[in-house]
Write a protein that binds this DNA or RNA. Structure first.
Length: 124
RNA sequence: GAAGUGAACUGGAUAGCCGCCGGUAGUUGCUUUUUCGGAAGCAAUUGCGGGAGGAAAGUCCGGGCUCUGUAGGACAAGGUGGUCGGUAACGCCGACCGGUCGUGAGAUUAGGGAAAGUGCAACAGAAAAUAUACCGCCUAAGUCCCUUCGGGGAACGGUAAGGUUGAAAUGGUGCGGUAAGAGCGCACCGCGGGUAAGGUGACUUGCCUGGCAUGGUAAACCCCACCUAGAGCAAGGCAAACAGGCAGGAAAUCGGUCUUCGGACCGGUUGCGAACUUGUCCGGUUCGCUAGUUACUGCCGGGUUCGCUGCUUGAGUCGACGAGCAAUUUUCGACCUAGAGGAAUGGCUAUCGCUGUCGCCUUGUGUGACAGUACAAAACCCGGCUUAUAGGUUCACUUCGGCG
RNA sequence: UGCGGGGUAGUUUCUGUUGGUAUGAAAUACCUGACUUUGAAUCAGGUGUCUGCUGGUUCGAUUCCAGCCCCCGCAG
């Protein structure tokens, strides 16, 4: 399995982030908020937003590294062809396995929500 | 052995799987160029090697670097404040001096000037800066009254020892002295002045002398000495692209040349206006001056979707000898040690180490279980300061107790 | 990353003190009373702040001076 994580897999510019937020399609659990939007490339991309409320620079960097590692090693269990923006909510760190389960569940729910919304728009 | 003081250092280790960011060597692909040998750039991939801190933090000081500005001077504004040294520089560091604290090792200290001037001190208290006289003490001398002739009383007065208030009351303690007292006199201490010695100096030590005279506050205004342009890598440069709107102003005269006699041009003098001189003024520089723009200046906006560079070899790190009490530094040698950009330097697993608690007996620094293993992550780069920090290591010194 | 501004009633905001013991006020909150059958609204009266924290200077600090903490804004 390809577990690499090149720059093409990341959201990098302000415009890309704004596009995802403009879709207004999000799901959440106590740990994370996930925004989702369909993209123009074949693979999925991820962007991270970690606010200062989560902790100091050391804790913020740890959040980002863990979330990137989960995306990198679990790409086959995540939906394809979408942009994800993941936002941590709480100050305390969950364990790695809890975080992995949380990300995969939320990504699946978000994909279902996006499909339902798209079919509703086509019907109307 | 116990308690403490001051410095310096350290800031977990190993293995496996999977990744990230630079560098370098090769391979492959694409593009550009070509003197057809190649060269350059980009991307992918393989190998090798590198990849957070002592505070990277706070952004409190000082510099480098970059742009803007700059003939010069004065003022203003801000900062620093024992002395000598160190340094590129500092508000930093070292040594020393004075004050305060500690039995001591040591710690700490914005520590110039209050006889240059001004201001301030609520309440309380008699009195708060020219001292004053509330309660007191005295009534000796001179005046008046009474008198049993011993003395008693009164006013005028003397006094600052004692009391009260306050943060602070015009040297302190003791003896003498006196009507009572007082530096009124004396001794010691403190203070002022002079002088000698030591020290580069802050200052220290001694001697003589003055009877004491000018209390606090300058992190109040101020005075003195010294220092200081402004902005900041989102600085700036290259390439590409774009080049729009609004606003701002002022003359007289002299000489010469030409003339279609209306004027035009050239040069000078005195002025005027605009802009700059990044606080103000003097002074200076540039441009323009009868007419309309241009030059010039100011303000506002649009686009650039974020390319390359600046970007890491530097007051660099380590070591040796020498100078210096030290901070630091001469010389020599060796070394190259992160350069990201929605932001890398890691994710997971296992084992070990360290610390604490509890258990077990084979009382060993043994073994097992559980818990903990800090603070905090480069953003142009250095020198400091300040603040945060689990645990561990080393050295020097002090006090107390025991033994010899 | 760099630069700048601020912190006083339970909450939001203004004002005062050349350093003398926090003056006055608005909105909201709370309490009491009036009006009402009751409540809301309205009216009247009342309650409450020792100044973000820690030191220093001073007789005395909200004010002056340091060091921290928190909040907010700006930039091509």
């Amino acid at each position: 399995m390809d577990q690499r994580f090149p720059k093409e897999d990341r959201l990098r510019t302000s415009a890309e982030f704004d596009l995802v937020f403009a879709g207004k399609c999000s799901v959440a659990d106590p740990n994370l908020v996930v925004y989702i939007a369909k993209n123009e490339v074949t693979h999925s991309r991820i962007g991270l937003v970690v606010s200062k409320k989560v902790g100091n620079a050391v804790h913020r960097n740890r959040w980002k590294r863990q979330l990137r590692a989960i995306f990198r090693t679990g790409k086959d269990r995540l939906p394809t062809g979408v942009d994800l923006v993941v936002i941590p909510r709480s100050r305390n760190h969950p364990t790695h396995s809890d975080l992995r389960r949380s990300v995969e569940t939320l990504a699946r729910r978000a994909k279902n929500k996006l499909n339902k919304r798209n079919s509703a728009e086509q019907a109307s």
